[in-house]
Design a protein around this nucleic acid. Structure first.
Length: 341
DNA sequence: ATGCATGAGGC
DNA sequence: CCTCATGCATA
């Protein structure tokens, strides 16, 4: 019943996780993150200011557009334009559970920030209150009573990054001093691979969902299928750097296998031509979202108490707010605009 | 394509 | 309670 998940971490480097600002981090990701956010700033700001900043946050919330620009993660959709790629689960073949290929390297623990001023909430909360009137938060019945077990096989793909990549290596980075693993984790290489991957996938006439479920057929130890979401995110580079690095060899393996299979098909032309309860997604209304963004700009890691206060003011469930902040933080760490280069 | 959610694993 | 990798549901 319970998934005894063994989502182990197959870390590529012994310690690729960066304690954010700790002196330990030597990973590129750490650097990337460091660039993205100005951590200590938050603390200081918090400690010192009050009215001023609050007004600022409020203003941001009010303006909305501005706050959105704060972190331009996604250029925002152009969805339907590529319907071919987004085919709705054409292959409903969900072989098995979401296996994991976690790149979970033991990591850092970030919560060492302080959340000084509490008074600020009050102000912000009060000011943002009006947003509530629009209250679009109808059903937040997100009670996680959901049987969704992730079982993952343990495997150490960690080293694939090096070992199995040798075969089809791609040291295009021409960098003299760049070792294999380095070129492998090079954001530019990941980006170009993602692009090539997408093109070749489309050429094969396969959807993202197809790729996801087909991965299970590769029989790679510990690798099961993946969702359309994940494939999509890989192609659009909206995954964490580590996640990208971990998935690359797998998708690369699939791609080669798929192309090989197709070639085979070509060669022999004649032969047979042949192959509960639903989770409800909570929707946070625009006004509330703007308020949340304003808070986030000031304090990305609100304490439990603050979350509760915010939740109350916005008339949202506390858990919804908490998860929102978690997701927001994750967004900040994604690849796309992370300038490691 | 992306928003909100789950769950393992780490402190 | 957080981070991370992922996924379902949905625009």
């Amino acid at each position: 019943m319970m998934s005894m998940n063994s989502k182990q971490a197959f870390s590529m480097h012994p310690m690729l996780h960066e304690p954010k600002y700790a002196p330990l981090h030597s990973s590129s990701e750490a650097i990337r993150r460091a660039c993205l956010q100005a951590p200590q700033l938050q603390g200081n700001i918090f400690a010192g200011f009050d009215e001023t900043l609050l007004r600022g946050a409020e203003a941001l919330a009010a303006v909305d557009i501005v706050s959105q620009k704060t972190h331009p993660f996604k250029p925002d959709a152009t969805y339907h334009t590529m319907s071919s790629v987004c085919t709705p689960t054409s292959s409903s073949v969900h072989l098995h559970h979401p296996s994991v290929l976690t790149t979970h390297h033991s990591h850092h623990h970030p919560h060492s920030h302080h959340q000084p001023s509490q008074g600020l909430d009050q102000d912000l909360l009060d000011h943002l209150n009006p947003a509530l009137s629009l209250g679009g938060v109808p059903d937040i019945g997100s009670t996680p009573s959901h049987p969704h077990a992730h079982m993952s096989a343990m495997n150490h793909m960690a080293h694939h990054t090096q070992s199995m990549n040798m075969s089809h290596n791609h040291s295009l980075s021409g960098h003299p001093g760049l070792s294999c693993s380095e070129s492998e984790t090079d954001p530019r290489e990941l980006e170009s691979f993602a692009e090539r991957f997408k093109q070749r996938r489309i050429k094969l006439g396969v959807t993202q969902a197809d790729v996801g479920s087909a991965l299970a057929n590769l029989k790679i130890p510990g690798v099961g299928c993946l969702s359309q979401s994940t494939i999509c995110r890989f192609e659009s580079l909206t995954l964490s750097h580590n996640n990208m690095v971990a998935l690359k060899p797998i998708l690369e393996a699939w791609l080669e296998e798929a192309e090989r299979a197709q070639r085979e098909k070509m060669t022999k032309p004649e032969i047979f031509t042949s192959g509960d309860k639903k989770r409800k997604r909570t929707s946070i209304a625009a006004p509330e979202k703007r308020s949340l963004e304003a808070y986030f700009a000031v304090q990305p890691r609100p304490s439990s108490e603050k979350i509760a206060a915010i939740a109350e003011k916005l008339d949202l469930k506390k858990n919804v707010v908490r998860v929102w902040f978690c997701n927001q933080r994750q967004k900040q760490k994604r690849m796309k605009f992370s300038a490691t280069y």
